[in-house]
């Protein structure tokens, strides 16, 4: 019997009274890697933000459980502390806030939550070293402001660095591959593969099959118009890349 980590049941979500997710059901077990593909505007980022608790979206019906506990009444920070991590499609720049300070505070918030000792700046500096190596990121990025003036690819690397530092139970990667060059793509895939473990799961949103040859998913879902249309193994991603989405939309 596999251990269900995330359970989404018949989820309906609206923004400003416009329905975006229209009955989405998904179950992710610990240890699994799921991929979601789908046309632009189908609701992939909406799903990721709803899971992280973005206040602009209203859940009109349905349920979300993480480890059997309902997420819907939790604030975003409580969800993060319970193990959800979202790598943003568009990471936000926060001028004036040092990346190192931010990351250390986030790590410490999590450690405190788990009853572990907090790290002082000097301890943190050595603690973060192998995470930087894992994502092949220059330590100089820690001295800059959070994502401020980072290139598209550097922002994505910084998301993966945060994921590695916060070691979430469920990591949602929203188009982590967009804007990455070949080397960066390989580094990101390596980092994700290194972090795969029996008690952690990944939900990977992508438009490209390329990422999924490096991070091999257990299950691929196709999303359209606020629902999951169909699911399959990794070959579904190849099929979609070859034939597009139209044939799938027609059969439904």
């Amino acid at each position: 019997m596999k251990n269900t980590l995330l359970h989404i049941n018949d989820l309906h979500v609206a923004i400003d009274n416009t329905p975006i997710l229209k009955g989405l059901t998904l179950r992710i077990n610990a240890g699994e890697v799921h991929a979601i593909m789908g046309p632009n505007g189908s609701g992939k980022s909406t799903l990721s933000k709803v899971l992280a608790g973005h206040p602009a979206y209203t859940v009109t019906s349905g349920e979300i459980f993480l480890n059997g506990e309902s997420l819907l009444n939790m604030d975003p920070d409580e969800r993060a502390l319970s193990g959800i991590f979202l790598a943003f499609q568009y990471p936000v720049e926060i001028p004036g806030v040092s990346n190192a300070g931010f990351l250390r505070m986030a790590v410490n918030a999590k450690r405190k939550h788990k009853g572990e000792d907090e790290l002082d700046p000097i301890e943190f500096e050595s603690w973060i070293k192998d995470k930087l190596t894992l994502v092949d990121m220059n330590p100089e990025f820690l001295d800059r402001y959070v994502n401020h003036g980072f290139s598209g690819g550097e922002k994505k690397r910084n998301e993966i660095l945060q994921m590695a530092a916060l070691s979430p139970q469920l990591a949602i990667l929203d188009e982590i591959d967009s804007g990455l060059d070949i080397d960066a793509l390989r580094d990101v895939a390596r980092a994700v593969n290194t972090l795969r473990s029996p008690d952690r799961a990944f939900l990977i949103i992508t438009h490209y099959q390329r990422l999924l040859t490096d991070i091999v998913p257990d299950i691929v879902h196709i999303m359209a118009n606020g629902r999951l249309l169909t699911s399959g193994d990794k070959s579904l991603a190849l099929e979609v890349e070859e034939k597009g989405y139209d044939w799938l939309l027609e059969t439904v």
């Binding site: 920070d77 993060a80 926060i94 999590k110």
Partner: peptide, 10 residues
């Protein structure tokens, strides 16, 4: 929201 999603209270 970005900060909150990293575990910081409002």
């Amino acid at each position: 929201f970005y900060l909150a999603s990293r575990g910081f209270s409002h």
